[in-house]
C-alpha cells in the first residue's frame, strides 16, 4: 500500500516538476502579493538580505550597520527614488558599503520591484 502511495507520489512529483519547467511563470502580482513577496525576498539571505545590515519590520536578528528601515515614505519622495537607492547606493554616496542590488544583478528587476513595494510600506 505504501509502495503504491509512494509511486503515485513520485509520478505526481515528476509531473509537477515538468509542469513547472514548461509553463512560463506569469507575474501578475497584485499590490498585496507584491508586498508579501517583497518581504520574503528582502529577508532571503541570497537575495536582498536587508536584515544583515538594517533593522526591518519584524525581521529577526537584524544587523546595525545601516539605518533602520522605518518611515520610508517620509525619507523618500517616491518609490522611484527608493528604487534608485537600492539599485546602486554608491551613485549618491561613493563611500556607501551597500551592495548595488540592481546594478550588479544581485536581484532581478522584477524582484527589485517587489522589494521596493515592501520597503515602501515600512
Amino acid at each position: 500500500m505504501t509502495r503504491i502511495k509512494s509511486m503515485i507520489g513520485t509520478a505526481a512529483g515528476l509531473t509537477v516538476l515538468l509542469a513547472g519547467t514548461l509553463a512560463q511563470p506569469v507575474a501578475a502580482a497584485d499590490g498585496v502579493s507584491a508586498v508579501t513577496e517583497g518581504k520574503v525576498l528582502s529577508e532571503d539571505r541570497k537575495k536582498g538580505n536587508c536584515l544583515a545590515c538594517h533593522m526591518m519590520g519584524d525581521g529577526a536578528y537584524p544587523g546595525n550597520i545601516a539605518p533602520p528601515l522605518v518611515a520610508m515614505q517620509s525619507r523618500y519622495p517616491n518609490k522611484e527614488k527608493l528604487r534608485a537607492q537600492i539599485w546602486d547606493a554608491t551613485a549618491n554616496n561613493p563611500d556607501s558599503p551597500m551592495p548595488p542590488f540592481g546594478k550588479h544583478r544581485i536581484v532581478s528587476d522584477e524582484e527589485l520591484d517587489k522589494i521596493v513595494e515592501y520597503v515602501w510600506t515600512l
Partner: peptide, 17 residues
C-alpha cells in the same frame, strides 16, 4: 511490480518531456 510500474511511469514521463 510497483517498482517496475514506477520506473515505467517515470520513463514515460521522461520520454514525453
Amino acid at each position: 511490480r510497483s517498482i517496475i510500474s514506477t520506473l515505467l511511469l517515470a520513463l514515460l514521463l521522461a520520454l514525453g518531456s
